[in-house]
């Protein structure tokens, strides 16, 4: 596969390490009342869609960016690649 890195352009997927569902960005915040149950959901419950899936890839043999790659798990088509940091910010994460 080829991942079109937002900063570096098209790169072979062999340069990347896969982590999983990009929902891992949405870590519950205990300081805002998140419970163990929220962490159970976060840690263990994942969708496994046959189709479009937002997932985390780490450019380990490259610039060490974490990326959110929107990929079709059936066809491996990639429709969007974003810096995970930007996605995290857009979902309200900060410090």
């Amino acid at each position: 596969m080829i991942i079109d890195h937002p900063l570096l352009g098209p790169r072979d997927s062999a340069e990347f390490t896969y982590k999983g569902d990009a929902r891992l960005i949405d870590r519950p915040d205990p300081e805002k009342g998140a419970t163990a149950h929220d962490f159970y959901d976060y840690g263990y419950l994942r969708d496994n869609p046959a189709g479009w899936h937002e997932e985390l890839w780490f450019h380990e043999a490259g610039d060490r960016s974490w990326l959110v790659v929107t990929r079709n798990t059936l066809t491996h088509e990639i429709s969007k690649v974003e810096l995970a940091r930007d996605v995290a910010r857009s979902r309200g994460r900060s410090k």
Binding site: L24, W66, A88
Partner: peptide, 19 residues
């Protein structure tokens, strides 16, 4: 060494992007 570094970058970029 490698997996911990990867994890630290995950925490930095994905969980606390403004630190």
């Amino acid at each position: 060494a490698l997996s911990v570094y990867r994890h630290m970058e995950f925490v930095r970029q994905c969980l606390y992007p403004d630190m």
